[in-house]
Amino acid sequence: MADALTLRDLNRATLARQMLLARERVGVVPAVERLGGMQAQEPRPPFLGLWSRVEGFAAADLLAALHDRAIVRATAMRGTLHLLATGDYAAFRRPLQPVLDAGLKALGDRAAGLDTDRVPPVARELLAERPRTFTELRNLLQERFPDVDERALGFAVRMLLPLAMVPTRDRWGFPRTAEFTLAEEWTGVALRPGAEPDGLVLRYLAAFGPASVADAQTWSGLRGLGEVFERLRPVLRTFRDENGRELFDLPDAPRPDPDTPAPARLLPEFDSLVLAHADRSRIVADTHRPALTTRNLRVRATFLWDGFVAGLWETERGRRAATLRLRPFAPLDGDAVAALTAEGEALLRFAEPDAAEHGVVVED
């Protein structure tokens, strides 16, 4: 019979993989690999996410890796933008193509007249000339395909071609309107052949395990991963959670004592920790889960106390002062307030170094 894991067992195991039990001395590229990539719908959150996890992290470290093309910002899991180590992107882009193909269904009636065989080669030709913003690319494609919705043209290219965003000298690496280019030409690393997602599943378990088939499907956006887990079963360990669900894990992955202390931590918007499982109770109570996402599907910044999401946070910037507001789900005790205040002040000094004053407010 498979060993049973409690909720705290799963919590501490996941925090260990995500470098949230203690900041670790690790380079930026291996950190992004260990995290299974970092969702990057906006450019700033990955910088804050790495600051919370990597000892001595400096923004220049990630900027250098982006400009050295060791890390790319590209469409990946769930059809969303992620930062990925270039080697991981090359390995996982083809296995993720079914997710991106399925994403085209969101176009609905706007896809009228869209020929997914003809549009990508034209876009590839345009991008081979030089990097382009999507506004520019859509306009050029509309000249070639005047009867097709321009938004549909742009979205199809984003889903069907392996593209990377070109970093700039902006503070967080990318401007509001960034340019895209062909990923293989940009990185000099060819996409690996084959569409089997076995390596992707193993990377997921290393970053977020122990986990179920449904968890891996939620994180990746891929369907039908049960067959992959069955194929990998001989090299994996299996467990059961408190509800009897089967969980899989790498044999030698960390599974700390459930009483291991977990420090106060602040996670940025869109952090993958709160998105990577179908059953997210290991990180956030089901009653609080709806508060993490806005109506327009923004994933809010959260803070952890004793390893679990205990509330939301946001920052305000005035002429002189930067303020971080903690909005707990329930009243915090004195130890929590002190630890979270210290962590918040340190984060503000990183994120808003030019502010003359930094302060943390804990709301009732």
Rank of each mutant, 00 (worst) to 15 (best):
A152K: 03
R203S: 13
V157P: 00
E150S: 12
L84P: 02
R176Q: 05
P251Q: 11
R319H: 15
T323D: 11
F248I: 04
A60G: 08
D88Y: 01
A322D: 12
G221K: 11
D117E: 14
R237I: 02
F47T: 00
R132E: 05
D68I: 02
E125P: 03
D306Q: 14
F180S: 09
G27W: 00
R69F: 05
L191R: 12
N243P: 00
I283C: 07
A301F: 00
A123W: 08
P131Y: 02
R69N: 08
F239Q: 02
F308D: 01
F134A: 06
A13I: 09
T238H: 11
L7H: 03
F329C: 04
P290V: 06
W186K: 05
R295T: 15
R138K: 15
S220V: 12
F329R: 07
W305M: 05
L347Y: 06
V360G: 04
I283G: 13
L15Q: 08
A102H: 12
T287Y: 01
P263S: 09
L324Q: 05
G113H: 08
A342F: 07
Y204S: 04
A338P: 04
L161M: 06
F57Q: 07
R349T: 10
R12A: 01
G188L: 06
L312K: 09
E129G: 05
P120Q: 06
L191Y: 12
V157Y: 00
A351R: 09
G244S: 05
T75N: 03
A31F: 02
T80V: 13
P120T: 09
V54R: 03
A4V: 15
L275Y: 11
L20S: 02
G49L: 04
E363N: 08
V157N: 01
V337L: 10
V228S: 14
E55N: 03
G79I: 04
D259I: 03
V361Q: 07
A152D: 00
E196P: 11
V228Y: 08
G173W: 09
E230F: 04
A285E: 13
R176G: 05
R203Y: 07
Q142L: 09
R237T: 15
R73F: 01
E125L: 10
R130C: 14
R265N: 08
N243Q: 12
